[in-house]
């Protein structure tokens, strides 16, 4: 901007201070918890002095070194967090693949059809998107008990796919609107059917949008608590309900540290995700906005 060189030093200082403050607020909780996850409970939740968490007084006394992997060992080995991690992986991969397949087909159709019902479908999808997930869960439980499908991974997967659809449709719809109509229409003039045009002309150019949408489908499935907590049985639990169940047994010394370690373990994949896909996430967040 042309105005850059005319900024007063005061303004620069204030805005830099504000941003710095925000960066600390955003990052410090994560760094602190990461640091604390390698301590014992008496240090991380210190009765006497919070600086114990920094010095690791009790960690030294109990384990002989300033850092300990006890929390991680307890969570992953003793409480079998790896099982939950596996379940999460299965659920997330299936949800992303299925919702993208359904979503690209539906989103493409919505973007290319100009009839009035397209609008109504999109509006209904918007209302569905706004519905709290737990309200739907209260509708599932009774029928699922009756049909004996409660507690299994495929049930949770298909439910998450359905809950994901409104968002996926909206996002891919606005994305397909940006691909010129002439592209597939000229293929149809050359004798392709609609599906062939989609398959050979649109599919090769749609990947940026699909990857962005896929990231958000991933986040929805990964971050879900309401559906997975209510619809999965104990041994099929995914990571987030598992962490919640750690909290129930906090009375026992050391168990809170299991939860802390599990929380850090579950955050790590998200951290890596931002590291590699920051650009796509940012463009996905703004995609809906630019359309208005």
């Amino acid at each position: 901007m042309a105005a850059t060189h005319r900024r007063s030093p005061l303004l620069v200082t204030v805005s830099t201070a504000l941003v710095l403050l925000w960066v600390v607020i955003a990052a410090f909780p994560f760094l602190w918890t990461l640091w604390g996850s390698f301590k014992v409970q008496a240090d991380f939740f210190s009765l006497a002095d919070w600086r114990n968490a920094l010095r690791g007084t009790f960690t030294m006394a109990q384990t002989g070194s300033a850092f300990t992997g006890q929390g991680y060992e307890g969570a992953w080995v003793q409480e079998e967090f790896w099982r939950a991690a596996m379940n999460t992986m299965i659920v997330v991969v299936c949800v992303v693949i299925i919702s993208l397949t359904f979503g690209t087909l539906g989103g493409y159709a919505l973007a290319r059809s100009g009839f009035r019902y397209t609008f109504w479908l999109l509006m209904i999808a918007l209302v569905f998107r706004a519905m709290p997930h737990i309200t739907l869960v209260s509708g599932y439980l009774l029928p699922f008990f009756q049909w004996n499908v409660w507690g299994h991974l495929p049930t949770a997967i298909i439910v998450l796919v359905a809950i994901n659809q409104p968002f996926t449709l909206w996002m891919l719809h606005s994305f397909f609107l940006n691909i010129p109509k002439d592209l597939d229409e000229s293929a149809m003039v050359d004798g392709c059917t609609r599906f062939q045009a989609f398959r050979h002309v649109i599919v090769p150019v749609m990947w940026p949008g699909v990857i962005t949408t896929g990231l958000f489908s991933f986040l929805l499935a990964y971050n879900d608590f309401a559906v997975t907590a209510m619809l999965l049985s104990q041994q099929n639990q995914t990571m987030i309900p598992k962490i919640a169940s750690f909290l129930g047994s906090t009375q026992v010394e050391g168990n809170v540290m299991f939860a802390v370690a599990a929380v850090i373990s579950a955050t790590a994949p998200l951290f890596v995700l931002i590291l590699f896909f920051q650009r796509q996430i940012v463009s996905g967040l703004t995609a809906g906005a630019v359309k208005g």
């Binding site: 960066v23 909780p29 608590f225 962490i243 919640a244 939860a259 955050t267």
Partner: peptide, 21 residues
Amino acid sequence: FVSLLPMIVTPLIGSLILFWM
């Protein structure tokens, strides 16, 4: 990058992290 963390992290995990602090 740093700003994306609080938003993307699982709500339950985010609230636990703050709750413990």
